[in-house]
Deep mutational scan, measured.
Amino acid sequence: VTTYKLVINGKTLKGETTTKAVDAETAEKAFKQYANDNGVDGVWTYDDATKTFTVTEMV
């Protein structure tokens, strides 16, 4: 189990959260659900070296 981080660069919501998951795919599903629940829709990137997902909403 690995800890993954999500950085949110939203128009109205900004911040970070973490989740523990067995792999990046599982973490991504959890983060996308979290973003969807919070009304964040944007471009996703993932950095495997730092285990960090970033979602950026276009203005």
Score class of each variant (00 low, 15 high):
Thr45Lys: 06
Gly42Arg: 01
Phe53His: 02
Tyr46Asn: 00
Ala30Trp: 15
Ala21Leu: 03
Thr50Glu: 07
Phe31Asn: 00
Asn9Cys: 11
Ala27Phe: 00
Thr12Ala: 10
Thr52Glu: 04
Lys29Arg: 13
Leu13Val: 13
Glu25Thr: 12
Phe53Asn: 00
Asp41Gly: 09
Tyr4Gln: 01
Ala27His: 00
Thr56Gln: 07
Asp48Gln: 10
Val59Phe: 12
Gln33Asn: 08
Phe53Gly: 00
Thr26Trp: 06
Gly39Trp: 05
Leu6Val: 03
Gly15Pro: 04
Val43Met: 11
Glu25Met: 10
Val1Glu: 15
Ala35Pro: 01
Glu16Leu: 10
Ala21Tyr: 04
Val22Leu: 14
Asp48Ile: 10
Asp41Trp: 11
Ile8Ala: 02
Thr54Pro: 00
Val55Leu: 10
Val55Gln: 01
Glu16Val: 14
Thr52Ser: 04
Asn38Pro: 01
Asp37Phe: 07
Glu28Gly: 09
Gly39Ser: 06
Asp47Ile: 05
Lys11Ser: 09
Met58Thr: 14
Lys20Val: 15
Glu57Arg: 03
Thr17Ala: 15
Gln33Asp: 08
Thr2Glu: 12
Asn36Lys: 15
Val22Gln: 10
Gly42Lys: 01
Gly15His: 13
Ala24Leu: 14
Lys5Tyr: 13
Glu28His: 15
Ala35Lys: 01
Glu28Asp: 05
Asn36Leu: 14
Thr50Met: 05
Thr45Gln: 09
Lys51Pro: 00
Val1Tyr: 10
Thr45Glu: 11
Ala24Asn: 06
Asn36Ser: 12
Ala30Lys: 15
Asp23Ala: 04
Tyr4Ala: 01
Val43Ala: 09
Asn38Thr: 07
Glu28Gln: 15
Thr3Asn: 08
Gln33Trp: 05
Lys14Asp: 05
Lys20Pro: 06
Ala35Arg: 01
Ala21Gln: 05
Lys11Phe: 14
Ala35Cys: 11
Lys11Ala: 08
Leu13His: 11
Thr3Ser: 06
Tyr46Phe: 05
Val40Ser: 02
Glu57Leu: 07
Tyr46Val: 01
Thr18Gly: 04
Glu25Ser: 12
Tyr34Val: 05
Thr56Ala: 05
Glu28Ala: 14
Ile8Gln: 02
Tyr34Asn: 02
Ala30Thr: 14
Glu16Ser: 12
Val7Glu: 04
Ile8Arg: 02
Thr56Ile: 09
Gln33Thr: 10
Lys20Asn: 15
Met58Gly: 12
Thr3Asp: 11
Gly10Gln: 05
Val7Cys: 06
Thr3Cys: 10
Lys14Ala: 07
Glu16Cys: 15
Val1Asp: 13
Thr17His: 12
Lys51Ala: 06
Lys14Trp: 12
Gly42Ser: 02
Phe53Thr: 00
Glu16Phe: 14
Thr56Glu: 09
Ala27Asn: 00
Glu57Lys: 04
Lys32Asn: 04
Val59Ile: 11
Leu6Ile: 03
Thr17Gln: 10
Ala21Cys: 07
Thr54Asn: 05
Asp41Ala: 12
Tyr4Leu: 00
Phe31Cys: 03
Met58Ala: 14
Gln33Met: 11
Ala35Asn: 03
Thr56Arg: 04
Tyr34Met: 04
Phe53Trp: 05
Glu16Met: 13
Ala30Glu: 12
Ala49Val: 12
Thr45Cys: 08
Lys29Asn: 06
Thr52Pro: 00
Ala30Gln: 10
Glu57Ser: 07
Thr52Gln: 04
Leu6Phe: 05
Thr26Gln: 13
Phe31Gly: 00
Thr26Ile: 07
Ala27Arg: 00
Lys14Thr: 12
Lys11Trp: 09
Gly15Ile: 15
Thr26Arg: 07
Lys11His: 12
Gly42Val: 02
Thr18Pro: 02
Glu28Ser: 06
Val59Ala: 12
Thr50Gly: 04
Thr45Leu: 07
Ala35His: 01
Thr50Phe: 05
Glu25Tyr: 12
Thr12Met: 11
Glu25Trp: 09
Ala49His: 11
Ala35Met: 07
Val55Lys: 00
Thr17Asn: 06
Gly10Trp: 05
Asp37Arg: 09
Gln33Arg: 12
Ala24Thr: 11
Val43Pro: 03
Gly15Gln: 14
Lys20His: 15
Ala30Cys: 09
Ala21Asp: 03
Lys32Ile: 07
Met58Ser: 11
Tyr34Asp: 01
Thr3Leu: 14
